[in-house]
Write a protein that binds this DNA or RNA. Structure first.
Length: 398
DNA sequence: TTCGATGATTTCTT
DNA sequence: AAGAAATCATCGAA
């Protein structure tokens, strides 16, 4: 707190009338002893030799007592303190101390602390608020975070179970955070009041300005705020881990419902010549399957590449859907008002590129009936040994 | 526990 | 930007 200053030199020793060469409180013991440090150039000479000598001895005594006070027992020290307080020189000495203090205070003021808010702390605060950890208890922050994180990927209905799991874990974190924050606040205020009381107590025997107390409080708060930052940081990390564990779409992948897969497959196989649904078709499919458009895109992307890679493997599936489509088409022809039995209504399954046959299994391009808007979508990729290369005319296709 | 299926993501290509 | 291809990560049946 108070730093020792060099014995001689640039201290505030401007030869005051009381013959103090420096801040008394900062002086090494031996230097304050009057006999060891006589100043003949002081202006004490104005008051007459006798008077001046007596004053110096008085001050020397007082300083000696102050300096040795720490070596004494508590009772002894208390008694000495009382005696010093009642000393006739006390007010004068005290005012000098104040003056010196005021001067040394300049250097302290230079080291003004910038009370600007720590940007990192602000960031952490904002994040905790957004995650629903800080702020009002039932503020839906967590729910908002969850819905925001899940809205991008279609959530299946049973995800509510995981939501509640996530929420309970989050509230656990929240509780820990709040109890720790309470502890922190309590410790901080306790320590602050303790120091303030100490300073107030000391202000009776040494000059302690309100500004100094203020400064001390700020220092304490700054020290404590680093603890706060740490606490908030670890809380944020915990939330992040929780989030990634519970909300990362990849981790909690769910297969689409059977009905959704059916709808997608119907579209795919009925548009096998050009399995690239338009934006509208994607939206329609997404609506029917209760998934997002991007999931539809993913599905078609995966389906195309996997079909292309191994057409043989998908032949059975293709047959089934071709059959279904054919049946539906026939039904529609017979009775156009009959509702779609496959439940895929909404877009026509009997498009221009309807796949009506079973692709050959010997690695050749499948044979399609009807127009092919993009018949070459499978490129030159020869399916790797569909079932049994070269000789797989199973004959079960008809 | 294994392994194929599958939805999602990343990287590259057009 | 859309799609292809590779890869990742999880699911779910055996």
């Amino acid at each position: 707190m108070l730093q020792q200053q060099p014995l001689t030199g640039n201290g505030p020793s401007n030869g005051r009338g009381l013959g103090l060469s420096s801040h008394p409180g900062m002086h090494p013991l031996n230097s304050v002893h009057p006999s060891s440090h006589h100043r003949s150039d002081g202006d004490t000479g104005h008051e007459g030799a006798e008077n001046g000598h007596e004053s110096r001895r008085d001050i020397g005594d007082i300083l000696q007592q102050i300096m040795t006070i720490t070596d004494q027992s508590l009772d002894e020290a208390q008694a000495k303190k009382h005696a010093l307080n009642c000393h006739r020189m006390k007010p004068a000495l005290f005012s000098v101390l104040c003056e010196i203090k005021e001067k040394t205070g300049l250097s302290m003021r230079n080291a003004q602390e910038e009370e600007s808010q720590d940007p990192q702390l602000v960031r952490l605060d904002n994040m905790l608020l957004a995650e629903g950890v800080a702020g009002p208890e039932k503020g839906g922050g967590a729910a908002a975070a969850v819905s925001a994180a899940t809205s991008s990927g279609g959530m299946s209905p049973d995800s509510s179970l995981e939501h509640s799991d996530y929420k309970s874990k989050l509230s656990q974190i929240r509780n820990i955070y709040h109890t720790e924050m309470e502890k922190y606040d309590q410790a901080c205020s306790e320590f602050t009041t303790h120091v303030m009381n100490l300073l107030r107590e000391q202000s009776r025997t040494r000059p302690v300005s309100p500004r100094e107390i203020e400064r001390m409080v700020a220092i304490i708060h700054r020290k404590f705020s680093s603890i706060q930052t740490q606490l908030k940081q670890s809380t944020c990390e915990a939330v992040m881990i929780l989030r990634s564990r519970f909300l990362d779409a990849r981790r909690k992948r769910r297969n689409f419902s059977k009905q959704a897969t059916e709808v997608l497959n119907e579209y795919f196989y009925s548009h096998l010549a050009n399995p690239y649904p338009s934006e509208e078709a994607k939206e329609e499919l997404a609506k029917q399957c209760s998934i997002t458009v991007s999931q539809v895109c993913n599905w078609f992307g995966n389906k195309r590449i996997r079909y292309k890679k191994n057409i043989g493997k998908f032949q059975e599936e293709a047959n089934i859907y071709a059959m279904k489509t054919a049946i539906v088409a026939t039904q529609n022809e017979d009775s156009p008002h009959t509702p779609n039995s496959t439940g895929s209504g909404g877009f026509s399954l009997t498009g221009p590129d309807l796949f009506l046959g079973v692709p050959p299994m010997n690695g050749e391009q499948p044979v399609y009936m009807g127009a092919q808007t993009n018949g070459n979508w499978q490129g030159q990729n020869t399916p790797p040994s569909a079932t049994s290369p070269g000789n797989d005319h199973s004959g079960d296709s008809d």
